[in-house]
Design a protein around this nucleic acid. Structure first.
Lengths: 195, 195
DNA sequence: ACCTGAACACCGTTCAAGT
DNA sequence: ACCTGAACACCGTTCAAGT
């Protein structure tokens, strides 16, 4: 009656992420998390229903690491910044990141990022429903690339090649957005850096 | 000495895929595969080194289900057909398909599909190295969409919405290819079906 | 309220043994 | 050559019990 908690949901999630980062998703077990926290595995079940929920929380934590750019930046810079942030988070947590593509994008943190993207697209001139569709496809491409890179699908390609690939993806997205906006001012559109 | 095999690598892979399709990736265990084949779990280890290799084989089997379009079709139709085939395979094997984005794209079956895409892109007019880059980005977008859809990230969106999303993705890709080819004949480019 | 000890069903994997 | 039986370490999860 009135014992101070030794662990919290937050410490559990943080420990889980650290384990997955260091030893892979296979090493992320309830026992490993408990051991790292100096507690028995059963203690975790007070804070988390089961392992599935733990994984949900860990994935959610990834999205928390994506910072939202300042409001006063132009919409295209905001999109570019978020895309790069996502890629950075993927490189930081390569074992867990792929799960992001497999869970419903309806959690609060995923909504937080998505709303920021949609807002930028609407400021660019897209109608709300078009912006939502564009966000879906755009995030799919960026997440797909980040997962591929983090998960090792592009193993064998140099960092330089992948950076160029990503720049090419950014340019492609920018071009398509300009095209749909009917914008002629392609001044900020870089020349295709193929090679 | 000279006993006829009860099981084969092929039957193991097929049983594994059937289990994953029916009950999810979590139900795909060595014991479950063995039970389905009427054999003890240890019998599997004669044909497969460990579970990791089994998963590799199963993923490889997914790619086998992607048919290569006829050579005499125009390059753009070939690309479109392959993209749609990939999406179909993803919908057929939603539990296993996400793994495709997490393994090195260097296996023989993945090379088979990739070479076909690169060839189409080269026939379109791209240089070999540009074609390879385009293939990487293009397959990332298509696989990313297929994984998202199969894995449930887009749960809550109607089939119709997702079909339109995919059509929009196809159009976007087509537009970018045309743009990089410097083609003016945009007759085959559909008007943007936003909504 | 929070944690533990003991227990259960299940998992991947090995090894020696059978035919 | 191919499969089995027995065994091991580990996993997620429960339940009653301790403080």
């Amino acid at each position: 009656v009135g014992r101070r908690p030794l662990i919290s949901l937050e410490s559990i999630v943080q420990a889980s992420l650290a384990i997955a980062d260091a030893e892979g998703l296979g090493a992320l077990t309830m026992q490993a998390v408990a051991r790292r926290l100096g507690v028995t595995p059963m203690a975790l079940y007070r804070h988390v229903r089961d392992k599935a929920e733990l994984l949900d929380r860990v994935v959610e934590a990834l999205l928390t690491e994506v910072p939202l750019p300042a409001d006063d930046l132009p919409w295209d810079e905001r999109l570019r910044t978020m895309g790069r942030s996502i890629r950075t988070v993927a490189r930081r947590h390569p074992a867990v990141f792929p799960l992001l593509l497999q869970r419903p994008a309806t959690t609060s943190e995923s909504r937080r990022v998505r709303d920021a993207v949609c807002l930028a697209l609407q400021e660019a001139g897209f109608a709300a429903d078009v912006a939502r569709r564009a966000e879906r496809l755009l995030s799919t491409a960026v997440l797909g690339f980040a997962v591929s890179e983090a998960g090792g699908r592009f193993r064998g390609h140099s960092r330089r090649t992948l950076d160029e690939d990503f720049a090419c993806l950014e340019d492609g997205i920018r071009h398509l957005l300009d095209y749909h906006l009917g914008t002629r001012s392609s001044s900020s559109t870089r020349a295709s850096a193929t090679s």
